[in-house]
Amino acid sequence: MYNYVEDGDSKTTAYVEEDQEKYEQFMARIEAGEKIEADDWMPTEYRQALIKLISMHGISEIMGALPEKEWTPKAPTLRRKLGIMAKVQDEMGHGQLLLRVAEDLMKPYGKTRENLMEDLLNGDLKFHNVFHMPTKTWADAGMVGWLVDGAAIMSQTNMLDASYGPYQRALQRICQEEVFHAQHGEAIIMALAEGTDYQREILQESLNRWWPALLMFFGPSSAATTGSSKQDIMIKYRVRKSTNEELRQAFLDKYLPRVFSLGLTVPDETVHYDEKEGKWIYQQPDWNEFKQIIRNKGPRSKERLRLREIAYENNRWVRQALVPETIGS
């Protein structure tokens, strides 16, 4: 699951003089629908934007495994225990696919997965806003599968024709698995919605808590909100097709009717579909809070990073023990 997030204070890339002829050939290729491969010539701006996008996407999958993982051993039935394990495993698997794609792009800079992990731990590599949020009840496990993944599917399918071949192929695999994730989430939610008073209560409470994070998921509608936005670059280079706001509207289109059909409400009395404008009207979430969250100042940022850090440091001996020379392969 994923979306591109920005905090507005990303390091600016130094202007790089590009070979104009190569640049034009490159643009002609992507405009003709060709796919760019890892060892093809590409503008530095393209490479750097992709590294940022895909490493953030990949690391968000890895960090995204953690909130659901909190409920994995606790899942209430054998079947749910198995289902959520398979789902969290997929998130790790998606991280694997995406980090491999990012790693190949970083090769010219001599960077590896180790650097990505270190960048995450020292705060240089950001992860998605939703994964900084707490998961307080079992209903949150359902909410992440249903609406958070729903939002993720919306933004990922939007990139299924991405101009960068390895990313496009990884997304193809990921989106196929996301169909299972969506149904896994729906199954948990459906049982709660049709369940006891207690179950309905934790479900509504969960939705109330997740609502602002879900709106934030797609990022600000323009750079004016948070100070910077890479969405235009991504559209120019044919990585994605739609703007943040278009994706958010599409998400509300697909999911709000379902939310209401389960007898649930969202914590915003102004939410409605404006027939004349042809779009959903909603109260803006607090974008300052969003900026804080993705700067690792969210409610669970520190704890989640700590988990990753311990797992990374604590297993270092294993990786050191098996570096190829040591075992003579």
């Binding site: 495994a65 969290v88 694997q96």
Partner: peptide
């Protein structure tokens, strides 16, 4: 299941989880 997400590297995490799921199965 408690190990999920904490293995020495990501590829192992995925493989280990399949074994865990099979065993719970």
């Amino acid at each position: 299941a408690e190990w999920l997400g904490l293995a020495p590297h990501i590829e192992e995490d995925v493989a280990f989880s399949s074994i865990t799921q099979n065993t719970m199965g």
